[in-house]
């Protein structure tokens, strides 16, 4: 639990500094957030887990005795052993190497698409909300229209055609391109109340240009929401990735992700359960830890509103 101690002391340091610097004795925003976050054991556990998983994804492939793409034809569908720590698949691939590699892929896809989604959603959502009148009307119509067809179907369609080493980039692209719409709606709703705040009116009446207002006033004040949404968005993106790859519509061999290992494990559920169990545990730890961090951040940033983002 070295990490949790680290977090706690960091918060303590910040607090001490804060109390000295201002005579007003107000607690700084980030201090407060860090302190509240550190006070939640579940959030700290989540952070530790995530760090361990990231370390595993980076270090795993280096310490594994087999590469994920070099099958051991002498050991097909073997149970975990000293040589194959998590066992092997029916094709002789080392499950440890596969999981480490797959975890890296899932993490990369999850984080990249979640960040991209947040950026796109923030820009479009705030813009639609800020400009009243026809921009808003047309924008909302397009957003509604884009939500008519479930995005899962659309992602599957465009990722289907791509395979090989670039498959994961296409998948990230697909998840991003069809994933921002719902978030944009949420952010639009939030911006609607922000745009009525007096400091936004004040900036308008001063003659500040619209995009400057969006950049200077709206997006920074959505900051906490954006951070939380990015973190929780990782869970959603990892889940999408897993589902698509599991159905054979996402990452395809020779590349691997946790979803494709699950798919391989499904057919040998009784004869070689380890193929299924290792990626499942990795997946659950990954999504669970990120969710814990996200929940912890949400409670720390805004203790009053526990409502998830819903349009």
């Amino acid at each position: 639990m070295a990490d949790s101690e680290l977090t706690v002391t960091a918060a303590a340091v910040l607090t001490a500094e804060d109390e000295q610097s201002t005579g007003l004795r107000r607690t700084g925003r980030f201090t407060l957030i860090a302190r509240r976050f550190a006070r939640r054991p579940s959030a700290v556990v989540g952070l530790v887990l995530l760090v361990l998983l990231v370390v595993f994804a980076f270090v795993g492939p280096r310490i594994a005795q087999w590469g994920y793409d070099e099958p051991d034809f002498l050991a097909l569908a073997q149970a975990p052993s000293a040589e194959h720590w998590f066992g092997t698949t029916t094709g002789g691939s080392d499950v440890f190497a596969l999981v480490a590699r797959g975890l890296g892929r899932s993490l990369a896809i999850g984080i990249l698409s979640s960040v991209a989604i947040t950026v796109i959603a923030a820009i479009i959502g705030t813009t639609i909300a800020f400009f009243e009148g026809w921009v808003e009307r047309v924008g909302m119509w397009v957003l509604d229209m884009l939500l008519v067809i479930p995005s899962f179907l659309l992602i599957a369609m465009i990722v289907r055609s791509s395979s090989g080493a670039n498959g994961w980039i296409w998948l990230t692209f697909g998840i991003t391109v069809f994933g921002w719409i719902g978030y944009a709606r949420v952010l639009r709703t939030l911006t609607l109340s922000l745009r009525e705040l007096d400091y936004v009116h004040a900036a308008r009446y001063m003659g500040v240009r619209s995009f400057t207002i969006i950049r200077r006033h709206l997006i920074p004040n959505l900051g906490s929401v954006l951070i939380i949404q990015t973190v929780l968005g990782v869970v959603a993106a990892v889940n999408s990735e897993t589902a698509l790859s599991f159905l054979g519509l996402g990452i395809k061999a020779p590349d691997t992700s946790l979803g494709t290992i699950l798919q391989a494990g499904q057919s040998v559920i009784l004869t070689a359960p380890w193929v299924l169990i290792a990626p499942s545990v990795a997946l659950v730890l990954l999504t669970f830890s990120v969710q814990l961090i996200g929940d912890g951040l949400r409670d720390a940033i805004d203790p009053n509103s526990r409502s998830g983002g819903r349009a």
Binding site: S42, V235, V238, N239, T242, A243, F246, G259, L262, G265, Q266, I269, L270, P273, L276, S280, L283, V284, T287, F288, V290, Q291, L292, D295
Partner: peptide, 24 residues
């Protein structure tokens, strides 16, 4: 709440496959 968070994030495929294993 802890259970809910767990089941909220667990990928459907994982959940379904473990239900299958348990049933078998």
């Amino acid at each position: 709440g802890g259970f809910a968070t767990f089941f909220l994030v667990i990928p459907t495929a994982v959940l379904a496959l473990f239900v299958v294993i348990a049933a078998i």
